[in-house]
């Protein structure tokens, strides 16, 4: 809608503090989930073209393209046709195309799809750098872990309805359910036998423990230390996925979609 691809049923769109217009459109970088590049075009020409339709003049475009070709390690492929590149490389080209006009707002839909871990890390680093520069990144993904690692603000959506919205840290705090993560030398039965434990299950050599409401955590920890050898003890923050599943259940919906 922001990108003028679909029209709103009602209301107005404000981006960067004013109604959306053509000038604002040039300040947005959009990377759709469905990749789109002219297959027969050479990488370099393609980048110049996409810069030109964002009204970037050729000199500026050249400087930025040169810079990003190096950053994205695409230089050896710049005269290859898009068709000849692997999916991951196409994705990197697409990524450069999204930022070649130095947008203030980035709208990224599943930006990491098709990228190997090395390139994922590469893109992630640059996104973090953009955030540090004060750019707004709207990041849409199905992979909640990515959202968790990258985002400040979260908006969870299911069946095209917003079900949860807010600052990630606050969301985690409000959704924390008094769970404890504890690493200790004890069998599952011994853990369950500790006073105040309502539920426990082993995760990666540690236990995630839920306490009976009202239990004094300090007292609980003391008891645990007396009985067993405790290596680590921490409050456990819920994962975004858990928050999401919980929210979906509460809303009576079941589908997945997240937006920062």
């Amino acid at each position: 809608m922001t990108m003028n691809i679909t029209a709103p049923d009602s209301g107005e769109i404000h981006v960067l503090g004013k109604p959306m217009d053509r000038e604002t459109q040039n300040r947005i970088g959009y990377l759709p989930e469905e990749r789109g590049l002219y297959r027969k075009m050479k990488v370099l020409d393609h980048l110049y073209f996409l810069a030109a339709i964002k009204e970037v003049n050729r000199e500026t475009a050249r400087a930025r393209i040169e810079e990003w070709l190096d950053k994205m390690e695409l230089r050896p492929w710049l005269n290859k046709k898009v068709d000849e590149l692997s999916k991951g490389m196409q994705q990197k080209v697409q990524f450069i195309a999204t930022i070649v006009h130095d947008p203030e707002v980035l709208i990224l839909d599943e930006v990491f799809s098709g990228l190997d871990p090395i390139n994922t890390a590469l893109v992630k680093d640059y996104l973090t750098a953009f955030r540090a520069k004060g750019k707004t990144i709207v990041f849409s993904t199905h992979v909640l872990e990515q959202a968790e690692k990258l985002c400040d603000e979260i908006c969870l959506m299911a069946k095209s309805k917003k079900i949860l919205e807010g600052n990630l840290k606050e969301l985690k705090r409000t959704h924390a359910e008094g769970q404890i993560r504890m690493s200790l030398r004890a069998s599952a039965a011994e853990v369950a036998a500790l006073p105040g434990v309502s539920a426990s299950h082993p995760v990666n050599g540690a236990y995630v423990i839920s306490l009976v409401p009202g239990t004094d955590r300090q007292a609980f920890l003391r008891t645990a230390i007396e009985r067993h050898e405790v290596n680590a003890f921490s409050d456990r923050e819920p994962e975004l996925e858990e928050i999401y599943l919980h929210a979906v259940q509460k809303a009576g919906l079941a589908e997945t979609r997240t937006i920062e």
């Binding site: 947005i28 959009y30 789109g36």
Partner: peptide, 16 residues
């Protein structure tokens, strides 16, 4: 071709 390669979405984000 533009439609089937989905490039049109990218272009329309910049051009009417």
């Amino acid at each position: 071709e533009e439609k089937s390669t989905r490039i049109v979405e990218i272009v329309i984000a910049s051009v009417r």
